[in-house]
Amino acid sequence: MLRTSLKALAILGGLLAAAPAAQAAEGAAHIPNQGFSFQGPFGVYDRASAQRGFQVYSQVCSACHAMHLMSYRNLRDLGLTEQQVAAIASQVQVQDGPNDEGQMFERPGRPSDRFRSPFPNPQAARAANNGALPPDLSVIAKAREGGANYIYALLTGYGDPPPDVHIAEGMHYNAYFPGHQIAMARPLNPDQVEFADHTPATVENMARDVATFLQWAAEPELELRHSMGIKIIVFLLVLAGLAYAVKRKIWANAH
């Protein structure tokens, strides 16, 4: 019995282990682990960091990158008050309509509006960016191998190319981008933004904050998922003990 169980476990383990190993991306450099607060089964978001990350996104990244799945109201979950969210939303002009004359019109944003996209369509985005399409960042942390660690690595991975690497016109060297040539120029520079909480705006800090923010944007359910998961697994462990005791009792006379 023990042997067969072990065998079953081995098969199961083999199946589970084989899958992602099979899918590990080739080509890019190894991505260092930054030990973010949301990692691990008890992980939660560092809200201050995520709020700073939103500031970096809105002052830097949002010039080219849309986040069309996000609404301003979602920022409430990051700890902003209703007034703060309304103020942030009202700073952007969003298109609405058609009105009674059949015309589209601009109005100040409301919390229920989606984040305003920098470009009306992908073609416009390409035209403004030398043919490259800046990806939407709503779920980027789920859409890249390595998630937030990759985002941090990419943002801090700019530098001079090794001598044997030729970089094409309009491209930039990045140690962590697959293929090492990225169309996006170095986006973060020291003191590019000013944080209200006086956190020094180093490239590393900003990269860390924006990676936290993007992870939150991609997985807003993470904290609830973790806390529910712990409770459910504890419940199931107790139930497993009980079920095993019942099973033993019933089988006691069957051998």
């Binding site: 419940f235 139930l239 009980l242 079920a243 009792k249 019933i250």
Partner: peptide, 13 residues
């Protein structure tokens, strides 16, 4: 004992 055990387990389930 089994009755009690069954009851607890069934309630949990």
């Amino acid at each position: 004992r089994r009755d009690f055990l069954n009851l607890v387990t069934a309630s949990f389930a």
